[in-house]
Design a protein around this nucleic acid. Sequence first.
DNA 1: CCATGTACGACCATTTCAGTCTTGCTTCCG
DNA 2: CGGAAGCAAGACTGAAATGGTCGTACATGG
Lengths: 160, 160
Amino acid sequence: MLRLTKKADYGLMALKYLAEQAFVAEHAGPNATGARSAKDIAEAYHIPPQLLAKILQTLARAGLLVSHAGTNGGYALARSAANISAFEVIRAIDGPLFITSCITIHGTCDLAGHCTIKEPLRKVNDSITDLLAGIKIADLIEPTDHLPAAMAGGLVSIER
Amino acid sequence: MLRLTKKADYGLMALKYLAEQAFVAEHAGPNATGARSAKDIAEAYHIPPQLLAKILQTLARAGLLVSHAGTNGGYALARSAANISAFEVIRAIDGPLFITSCITIHGTCDLAGHCTIKEPLRKVNDSITDLLAGIKIADLIEPTDHLPAAMAGGLVSIER
DNA sequence: CCATGTACGACCATTTCAGTCTTGCTTCCG
DNA sequence: CGGAAGCAAGACTGAAATGGTCGTACATGG
Ligand code: SF4
Ligand code: SF4
């Protein structure tokens, strides 16, 4: 059920890494960008560099990252870490796929008409979306004992 | 992202159908069982009968349905419709798969050690689980304008 | 004993995922 | 200027999951 692709997984990791870099850069000096090359990130987490590169490209195209080519180039967050949600990352990488086949592209599932379960499921889907949207990558940077904000406060409406 | 398999989809539909049957049976007479054959359900929703049969068998094995072979046999809910959660159905059909590769079987993902994103993701996973667990099949039987209980009340803690 | 129905497993086609390779373009730096 | 470092983009491949079929065996009511 509900599987997150490894690519999205990698994407999240990379984002987190860049967020950390941005954080230290901010405290290091005014002209530090926090940019890192795809290779650097890949090495840090032991994931295939080429694959990560492609993921980062996708993320950049989606506007979540800014890229800079050439020597000493690399990627950096386009926005503040607290301003990028896990949902955006996932959607950028895996596409606007949702739990059922019918929700995104109207007409995919041939049982559209006589499906009685579609509407309720759409609500569930929305709930999950909201949940994910409420989680920012800044939330997953803390040192594990301090709960992420979205989770610490603890309540998320699933009404939509 | 987060895709629900079609089998689970079918399973949910069948469950809902059975729930409806149980409801009318209850109001029809004391000895009405509400049992329906796999073929009946498949025809009602235009889904491949053989496939549905297999799904129902799985569900029965998981204890969500009771089956009765022979003429006039079929499947019926093992419990009350308000007492079966969507989560159980999905898990019974798709297995205990979860969003990341690491959560269920400890040791699947080879990056286990240096993965910094694992714990936060586990929390997200739990949140989704809770959300799903809070949705009973009775909730998706209502005539669409009345929101399911789990959604109407509207608040679910994602702290775990 | 036979029609109806479940039970179970093997099988197959198609799609998706994960990962690699190749080729080209951009920018910095000496 | 000219390379090295780096991004950009696409084609391609192997492996796995999905969705679905078939065949056979067993149970049960009439
Ligand atoms: S229309 Fe119904 S059966 Fe088809 S994908 Fe949507 S929920 Fe599933
Ligand atoms: S250990 Fe990290 S990379 Fe591996 S599956 Fe879990 S979250 Fe993803």
